[in-house]
Design a protein around this nucleic acid. Structure first.
Length: 576
RNA sequence: CGGAGUGUAGCUCAGCCUGGUAGAGCACUGCGUUCGGGACGCAGGGGUCGCAUGUUCGAAUCAUGUCACUCCGACCA
């Protein structure tokens, strides 16, 4: 490609409402143009990147034995009624009526459509297993679209669905996809982690998210640097402390702590570390049978409650936070000074986090406004509570696999694989006849990759003050030729054109900047749009048969013999 | 959904308080000089100041309404 034949516009300044780096860079580099909130046009330059990502995904999916198809973006709402997801999906599902007043949706995902396809045509175990996928635009009417293409409303996604005669076979394909996804993200040149994920309300048995590691990510991931353990923070188990509880050394005492409601204030006031203070969170559980349970959840005050874990305690599943009125009714004290000492243990259940089990001589609210208790000890001042894992892990916690300490980092979810089991197949009656001629519901898996989000995520990982840095596998062009005086010097023009032809012949994705621009403009543009390799052709070097090479991340250029440049680039692109 | 803020040229923004012929930089067009790190000069094109209503002789500016966009919040006492 010659830039003079191409169409791209770069900006010196990013639009004011761009928040994250990738969004600013993509707008400045002219990859995308905003059309409406969360809706973007992919300009030719950005589309090249998107297509490269898409093709890597496609190649690997095909190699893994999946078959591509293309389902419609628009789906009849009837299918959503049949699966039972329609009402539950809420306003994220964009609905509209056609001219006959029939309800349609713009698909946010395609489980219903694919299951409908398969149930019509797959009747026998002989046709299974089958894995079908598509790369299609989706629409989810997000409450707050932001971060450019990373949380857009319209986005490009690869979604695959596999159908099996048995759970065993589903697990085999799940493993196959785990490996395939790892290959895909490796080829894309991303730093990523596969993390165990919460299976959520569907309650399947296996689910992994693939996260690109970046500070601007929206998810917290706990991982162990010395093993391959990684999990969503919501899911990572906080192990019970190994050290036994120290012996009680102080008498319990009521101290005046006027106005010190927050744990941090109490700690400062008493000159104690946060980990000597127990915070009590009042919750209420109202069961379907009408019974109401009031409970205090005890946590070390430097820890955070994990609601997913806490809701696994049967006695308080499901729970909500108690209102101020409820707290006063049960504890006769306003929130801020509540604690587990001296309450009516018949009406107030106490559940403590495992880490609280190792505490002695601790501080908690005194159930009297303006007072806290110090030197509190279990067994002596109050009964031993029941201990559960109800907190989020923090950096430094032991890894659940016993192989070191956890670290926490932010991630951008770019892939998700899921053992759906029979949820949709059952709802949509997707069944086959087995060897005995008996009808059985199919086992399903689903596997998603956020193709457009990957472009944003890759730029979050690869950028500097000059612009975008992408690996050659997905950069808009792998190599750029920047001539010094293309329109002035016959020698430079001839050498540039020759090199351009040679690189093209060698199968290298090359762009020649033949615009009649000043060098600074060309350098800046090629850096901004993220071309990984640059060759400068100038009369200066040409006299000695030399060209100038610099990678996007090198600080200085190196002179190379003109005759060797093609081989050098081939070598670099092969390695990368 | 609650709170706050912003809408003026393709982009970044000034002008608004104190009403009186709509501005700057970047980008774009032409000419000239320049040409190895986002050049300079001259001459141009481009805006119904988000939209509607009102106040006024006169509204980008004041008032009301409306729409759009952005941010913050929606639990850990």
């Amino acid at each position: 490609m010659r830039t003079s034949q191409f169409f791209f516009t770069t900006l010196k300044e990013a639009p004011a409402d761009a928040e994250v780096i990738s969004q600013k860079m993509m707008l400045r580099a002219g990859y995308i143009k905003r059309v409406a909130a969360g809706i973007y046009t992919w300009m030719p330059l950005g589309l090249r990147v998107l297509r490269k990502v898409e093709n890597i995904v496609r190649e690997e999916m095909n190699n893994a034995g999946a078959l591509e198809l293309l389902m419609p973006a628009v789906q009849p709402f009837e299918l959503w009624e049949e699966s039972g997801r329609g009402p539950g999906y809420g306003p994220e599902l964009l609905r509209f009526k056609d001219r006959h007043q029939r309800d349609f949706v713009i698909g946010p995902t395609h489980e219903e459509v694919i299951t409908d396809v398969v149930r019509r045509d797959v009747k026998s175990y002989r046709q299974l297993p089958i894995h079908l996928y598509q790369i299609q635009s989706k629409f989810r009417d997000e409450i707050r679209p932001r971060f450019g293409v990373m949380r857009g409303r319209e986005f490009l996604m690869k979604d695959g669905y596999s159908f099996h005669t048995s759970f065993e076979d589903l697990k085999r394909e799940y493993g196959n996809m785990y490996d395939t996804y790892s290959r895909i993200f490796t080829r894309l040149g991303l730093r990523f982690r596969a993390v165990a994920a919460d299976t959520g309300s569907i309650g399947g048995t296996g689910s992994h998210e693939f996260h690109v590691l970046a500070d601007s990510g929206e998810d917290d991931i706990a991982f162990c640097p010395s093993s391959d353990y990684a999990a969503n923070v919501e899911l990572a188990e906080a192990l019970a402390p190994a050290a036994p509880r120290p012996v009680a050394g102080k008498a319990m005492e009521k101290v005046h702590t006027p106005g010190k409601m927050a744990c941090a204030d109490v700690a400062k006031f008493l000159d104690l570390p946060l980990n000597k203070i127990v915070k009590s969170i009042a919750v209420v559980s109202e069961k379907e049978d009408g019974s109401k349970t009031f409970a205090l959840l005890l946590l070390r005050s430097d820890h955070d409650l994990n609601e997913i874990k806490a809701s696994k305690i049967d006695a308080i599943n499901p729970f909500r936070f108690a209102t101020e009125e409820e707290v006063i009714e049960r504890l006769n004290c306003k929130p801020g000074f509540i604690g587990p000492v001296g309450v009516d243990y018949d009406t107030v259940r106490i559940f403590a986090d495992r880490s609280v089990a190792a505490m002695s001589d601790f501080v908690c609210g005194a159930n009297e406004a303006g007072y806290h208790m110090t030197g509190v000890n279990f067994g002596r001042d109050l009964p031993e509570p029941v201990f559960f894992d109800i907190r989020n892990v923090v950096a430094g916690d032991p890894s659940p696999d016993g192989k070191g300490k956890l670290e926490i980092c932010r991630g951008i979810e770019v892939g998700h694989i899921f053992q759906l089991r029979t949820k949709y197949a059952e709802a949509l009656n997707c069944a086959f006849l087995d060897e005995q001629g008996k009808s059985q519901v199919m086992e399903m898996g689903c596997y998603g990759i956020g193709v457009s989000r990957i472009v944003g995520a890759a730029i979050e990982q690869g950028n500097d003050d000059k612009g975008i840095i992408l690996p050659p596998s997905i950069a808009p062009f792998a190599v750029c030729i920047v001539p010094m005086g293309y329109h002035k010097s016959e020698a430079v023009k001839a050498a540039s054109d020759q090199l351009y032809a040679d690189l093209k012949k060698a199968g290298i994705d090359v762009v020649l900047d033949d615009r009649n621009e000043r060098p600074g403009v060309m350098f800046a543009d090629m850096e901004l749009i993220g071309i990984p390799h640059r060759v400068v052709v100038g009369e200066r070097g040409l006299k000695d048969g030399q060209l100038e090479y610099k990678s996007r991340t090198d600080t200085d250029a190196t002179m190379v013999a003109a005759g060797e440049i093609v081989a050098i680039l081939q070598g670099k692109l092969c390695v990368a």
